[in-house]
């Protein structure tokens, strides 16, 4: 095992407001990590900093490189299709991905399209929330990357789609790759996590093995996560 992602002394401010500070995080390869925290805690920001979509102070290294352009070649991020025309057909979106990402794998993409029942003839504007989320997952997993960043992939979708998305994660995540899944509701993904990272008070509040939490604290992940917030309230 080696360090796939290493974040050192990361600070990020925007509009004169400090959003994240003293972020230090190391994640090794082959893991599924739950990135937890309340809405607005900075989970998405942290992912955007890793991809280089946002600029902070500090060092972020992915697969041994800290240069933004090279880092991008190792990271597959669910980017919610920002910038593509809403009249674009789903099939064209796959073509676009294939033409700009050298690690796009057609065989993987075809099986994902079939498994997730994606209709290539629909326009982006015609997709329901659940279909769009499935499309985003299919696009993200179609790349053979080292680090997958899934930003709230279960937002507002039905339980059948959720199960399919979880299954496609388990089925198509390359074994040596690491996946970070952000969510503010942990129960639905608790069983597939190796580790959890909690973003709270503008920094990484804790980073633990999931089964260690269950063994040492005799509590579930959700319960543990909530206890972090109760503890915080008593301190006030």
């Amino acid at each position: 095992m080696s360090d796939l992602l290493k974040i050192e002394n990361l600070i990020y401010s925007h509009s004169l407001k400090n959003i994240l500070h003293d972020v230090n995080l190391t994640v090794s390869d082959g893991k599924i990590v739950g990135l937890l925290g309340e809405n607005g805690a900075g989970k998405t920001t942290l992912m955007r900093l890793i991809t280089g979509s946002a600029h902070g102070k500090g060092t972020i290294t992915v697969a041994g490189t800290s240069k933004p352009a090279e880092r991008k070649s190792h990271v597959s991020f669910t980017e919610h299709l920002g910038g593509l025309s809403s009249g674009m057909k789903v099939g064209k979106v796959f073509d676009f991905y294939q033409s700009v990402y050298p690690d796009f794998n057609i065989a993987r993409s075809n099986s994902l399209i079939e498994f997730l029942d994606i209709d290539k003839n629909l326009k982006l504007s015609a997709l329901s929330k659940g279909m769009k989320e499935k499309l985003i997952i299919a696009l993200t997993l179609s790349r053979q990357a080292d680090l997958y960043l899934l930003d709230e992939p279960f937002g507002g979708i039905d339980s059948m789609s959720r199960k399919k998305i979880i299954n496609s994660i388990l089925k198509w995540k390359p074994e040596e790759s690491t996946m970070i899944i952000s969510d503010h509701y942990v129960t639905e993904i608790a069983s597939i996590l190796d580790e959890i990272v909690v973003v709270k008070d503008k920094t990484i509040n804790c980073h633990k093995q999931a089964d260690e939490i269950r063994e040492d604290n005799d509590m579930g992940i959700e319960e543990f996560y909530e206890s972090l917030y109760e503890g915080g309230k008593q301190d006030d």
Partner: peptide, 15 residues
């Protein structure tokens, strides 16, 4: 649009 949207800015290529 291409300068500020993730669909293009996430592409692994120099700025």
């Amino acid at each position: 649009r291409k300068f500020v949207r993730d669909s293009y800015r996430l592409i692994p290529i120099s700025d």
